[in-house]
Design a protein around this nucleic acid. Structure first.
Length: 585
DNA sequence: GCCGTTTTCGGCCCGACTGTTTTCAGTCG
């Protein structure tokens, strides 16, 4: 373990590892869940862990009791945890990777380790091929074959699928399913419906009086590459990817029409959200499953339910939009009628941070303008790269001034959509900007972004961005953490400190809607809102089709609990022009 | 291990499918 103080995420990871180790040790499942739960609680703390430890308030965090509090304190103060080290000493660290293999859980991993000394994915593969795995009690030829398939799948798809990729596949399937005569209602569920940034598998839900017909239609669908499991109500397949190989996993559930709202709620999740709802149902004496409420002995009769809304109402809750169902306080808020009224797509009036051919975009200013108009936007901001982004053909001062002139000219000629002249100006290593204030002052707005020196330490990177925000011409910070989903980690950054500075300097924080980024992450937006920081949803469009990414931006804003009022570009053109001047004056 | 208008013990969400089994354990969501 590192000698420096571990950060909150690292501590949450240790708690998760403890949970896995306890599973391997065959511990009480509720104890295991307690560690999972505590890890999740840590991940959504709204204040620094260090402060909670110093003020001895950790025990007040839900899911953290005396025992786990002591362990966290030990980790924070010494950087080590004797309990964890003791647990770990019984198993090699490589064993953890076996949990990633579909069909393998703690019991079988332990069996494989104790009987065959298998402690890695490579070992498991060898054991399956040699026939040894099939000889173990409780396992057989079929298990070994399935492990080999699962290993191959894991190697092809370490990581997950992006929201846009999963959405595209789901749209195809749902369109075809809805056209089938035996299909009543058909909805996506799972993390796709909750609009998470990454999707592990696709969950589709259908209501039908003829489940067999639906299942057989689904299993023969041209997008299906391989059948994993098939039952009367549930089947599971791999879908074809671009190369025609097995890609995303897709589960189809077929239920009776009257069961649909229960099943939709259940399969939408999240798991933690469902667990809470079931506990809440039990308070009324009803057991809740994916089909119905079942009153326990002496309990009152549950009301009839025809929709998710009625289902929540039966539990004395406001309807909770799927995006919020992550067990982050939404149930308590729904009980008190305090859920936010989430922003809607139709409330978005314009956007900033779009590129053209002048730097690294694919389309001209005119084409971008027309596409935005078609999308129904009132205004569009053009922000091509600045000169330091050589790889992206960043504009030099002279080229930028020409572009500003062109934009002013277009606004004279076309009154249907207003164009704003901006720049995505590099934040240099020391926090200064790529253009002088004299140049910046001629623009309508500035998106300041980091495109270099990603490896600065947290303090330096934080200071770098804060310095940029202190510039009166910097309107907003682009893709704050620089993450690229599944390919680049966010750079080290003290996000609460950045949000404080954003509030103090009246700088907007971008929600970059490009599905590879979705940055800033949705988990931070409630804190941003609390601190009074405004969000601006930008597509970072490098083509006309890139403007469509705005929809994912709305998804993530909703997931972050943001309302129309929390988002800068829900303002009309009339109001936005004065708002853009606000920081400068 | 956590939690409490049933409060310091005794609960803790619930069901489908698979593979290896002759009645069920393990895994998954």
């Amino acid at each position: 373990m590192k000698t420096t103080v571990p950060d909150t995420q690292e501590i949450a990871d240790v708690l998760e590892k403890i949970a896995q180790l306890l599973e391997l040790h065959g511990e009480n499942p509720f104890k295991i869940r307690a560690y999972h739960h505590a890890a999740r609680s840590l991940e959504r703390l709204s204040e620094p862990l260090q402060v909670l430890v110093e003020e001895k308030r950790l025990g007040a965090v839900e899911g953290i009791g005396k025992a786990i509090e002591e362990k966290i304190v030990e980790l924070v103060t010494t950087g080590r945890l004797a309990y964890y080290e003791e647990l770990r000493s019984h198993f090699p660290p490589s064993l953890f990777e076996l949990f990633e293999i579909q069909g393998l859980g703690a019991k079988k991993i332990r069996l494989l380790y104790e009987e065959l000394h298998i402690d890695s994915i490579d070992d498991l593969e060898k054991g399956c091929l040699s026939g040894q795995v099939a000889l173990l009690p409780g396992l057989g030829e079929k298990s070994a074959t399935n492990f080999l398939k699962a290993i191959a799948f894991y190697r092809r798809h370490v990581g997950k699928f992006r929201l846009d990729q999963a959405t595209l596949l789901a749209d195809f399937l749902i369109t075809d399913l809805r056209a089938h005569p035996a299909v009543g209602q058909c909805q996506p569920a799972g993390s796709l419906r909750r609009r998470k940034e990454s999707i592990g598998d696709l969950d589709l839900l259908v209501s039908s009086k003829d489940p067999e017909a639906v299942n057989s239609f689904f299993l023969k669908h041209p997008l299906v590459s391989e059948i994993l499991m098939q039952g009367p109500t549930k089947s599971s397949v791999y879908l074809k990817n671009e190369e025609g190989e097995s890609g995303l996993q897709c589960d189809l559930r077929v239920v009776k029409p009257e069961e649909f709202p229960f099943a939709l709620l259940y399969f939408t999740g999240s798991k933690e959200h469902n667990i809470r709802l079931r506990s809440r149902a039990l308070e009324s004496g009803w057991s809740l499953n994916e089909y119905a409420f079942t009153p326990q002995r002496d309990a009152s009769t549950p009301p009839p339910v025809h929709s998710e809304k009625e289902l929540y109402a039966a539990l004395k809750l406001d309807f909770i939009p799927p995006e919020l169902r992550e067990d982050r306080g939404e149930i308590a808020a729904a009980a008190l009628n305090k859920l936010p009224k989430l922003v809607e797509w139709t409330e978005l009036k314009g956007t900033f941070h779009c590129h053209t051919k002048a730097s690294d975009g694919e389309n001209t200013l005119q084409e971008m303008s027309e596409a935005a108009e078609e999308l129904g936007l009132e205004y569009l901001g053009i922000a091509d790269h600045s000169k330091s982004s050589v790889q992206a053909h960043g504009l030099h001062e002279k080229e930028l001034l020409v572009q500003i002139q062109e934009i002013r000219q277009r606004n004279q000629e076309n009154k249907k959509i207003h164009l704003f002249a901006g720049s995505e100006c590099d934040i240099l290593k020391d926090g200064s900007l790529d253009f002088s204030n004299e140049i910046l002052s001629q623009l309508d707005y500035v998106v300041a972004s980091v495109h270099s020196s990603f490896t600065l330490d947290e303090a330096a990177m934080t200071q770098r961005i804060i310095r940029a925000m202190e510039n009166p011409y910097v309107t907003m910070i682009g893709h704050l953490t620089g993450r690229l989903l599944f390919s680049r980690e966010p750079y080290a950054l003290n996000i609460p400190a950045i949000l404080d500075a954003a509030a103090a300097t009246k700088t907007l924080i971008e929600l970059n809607a490009n599905p590879r980024r979705l940055d800033l992450d949705w988990r931070w937006w409630s804190l941003a809102k609390e601190k009074g920081v405004l969000c601006v949803i930008n597509p970072d469009a490098h083509s006309t089709s890139g403007l469509q990414h705005l929809r994912f931006g709305i998804d993530i804003a909703r997931k972050g609990g943001l309302t129309k009022e929390d988002i800068f570009n829900t303002a009309s053109l009339k109001n936005i022009q004065t708002a853009l001047q606000k920081k400068r004056s």
